[in-house]
Lab assay of single mutants.
Amino acid sequence: MTEYKLVVVGAGGVGKSALTIQLIQNHFVDEYDPTIEDSYRKQVVIDGETCLLDILDTAGQEEYSAMRDQYMRTGEGFLCVFAINNTKSFEDIHHYREQIKRVKDSEDVPMVLVGNKCDLPSRTVDTKQAQDLARSYGIPFIETSAKTRQGVDDAFYTLVREIRKHKEKMSKDGKKKKKKSKTKCVIM
């Protein structure tokens, strides 16, 4: 069974824990209790493949930012979460993405942009803004509501699919490099 290491990042209060708990335990946590770091595991079937999701729910508070490099190193894919009623959390996505790329030393890291709290009427981040940002990053965008469960499975499952595509691409690139290195030079 394939294991996928997913990391949920975003500013404090955007609903990272609520999304994760909704996926794992099928219930909505409405009281806000700032996370330092929590880890969850769940076995699911995605596109006919049974897999184990190892999900790291991270601290959004700035005082825990020193811990970010460590979990970013171990993560295979990242859910970059903002709240649709919090423009600052949307603007912060850029910083999370840049930090992930720096730590992973790669421009090509599996990510999904997630606009959470889409059940709320007080939207300050337009869907088109988020779609445009995701398009500019070359990553999928999904709106979710941890409260109603809308888009929750889709967000995590899409990230797994992005990781699969990335692994497939990397193995193809690896095979191309191996083929090239088999060419021999004969000096007579």
Results as ranks from 00 to 15, higher is better:
L52I: 13
G10R: 00
Q25M: 12
C51M: 08
Q25C: 08
L23S: 15
D33V: 10
L23A: 15
D54L: 01
V44F: 06
E62H: 11
T35H: 01
C51D: 10
V44E: 03
K16Q: 04
G12E: 09
E3F: 07
D54S: 04
L19W: 04
G10V: 00
D33G: 06
E31N: 09
L56W: 14
E3S: 09
H27F: 12
Q61M: 14
K16R: 04
E63F: 04
T58F: 15
E3C: 07
E37A: 02
T58N: 04
V45P: 05
K16Y: 00
C51P: 08
L23M: 11
S17N: 02
D30P: 08
D30R: 10
I46E: 08
T50Q: 04
V9S: 06
Q25Y: 06
N26W: 15
I36T: 00
G48N: 12
F28Y: 10
G15E: 01
N26C: 14
Q43T: 05
E63Y: 05
K5N: 15
G15I: 00
E31M: 07
Q22V: 02
S17F: 01
T35R: 01
S39W: 05
I55M: 08
D47G: 09
L23E: 15
N26H: 15
K5R: 14
T58R: 03
T58V: 14
N26E: 06
V9R: 01
I36Q: 00
A11I: 11
E62M: 15
G10F: 00
E49C: 08
F28G: 02
D33K: 07
G60T: 06
E49M: 09
I21Y: 14
D57Y: 01
V9D: 06
K42E: 05
K42M: 15
V45Q: 12
G13C: 14
L53T: 10
A11H: 08
G10M: 00
T35Q: 02
G12T: 07
G13A: 12
F28Q: 01
E49S: 12
T2V: 11
F28H: 05
Q22E: 07
E3I: 05
T35L: 00
V45H: 09
T20A: 14
D54R: 03
V29E: 11
T50S: 11
I24V: 14
E37C: 04
I46W: 09
E37F: 00
N26R: 06
K5M: 05
D30W: 10
G48P: 12
A11W: 07
D57A: 01
V8P: 00
V44S: 11
Y40K: 03
E31D: 13
I55Q: 01
K5V: 03
K5H: 11
P34Q: 03
E62D: 14
V29F: 07
L56F: 11
Y4V: 12
V14D: 13
P34N: 00
G15P: 00
D47H: 08
E49K: 12
F28V: 03
D47M: 04
Q43H: 07
Y4P: 14
L56M: 10
C51F: 11
L6S: 01
L6K: 00
G10S: 04
S39C: 12
F28N: 01
K42V: 10
D38W: 14
L6I: 13
L52Y: 11
L19N: 13
G13V: 13
T58S: 08
D30V: 09
Y4S: 10
K16W: 00
D54K: 03
L19M: 14
D33N: 09
Y4A: 09
E31W: 09
G12D: 09
V44N: 08
K5Y: 02
Y4M: 09
V8C: 09
N26I: 06
T58H: 08
I46L: 12
V29M: 13
Y4C: 12
K42C: 11
G15C: 02
A11M: 13
K42Y: 06
L19I: 12
L23K: 08
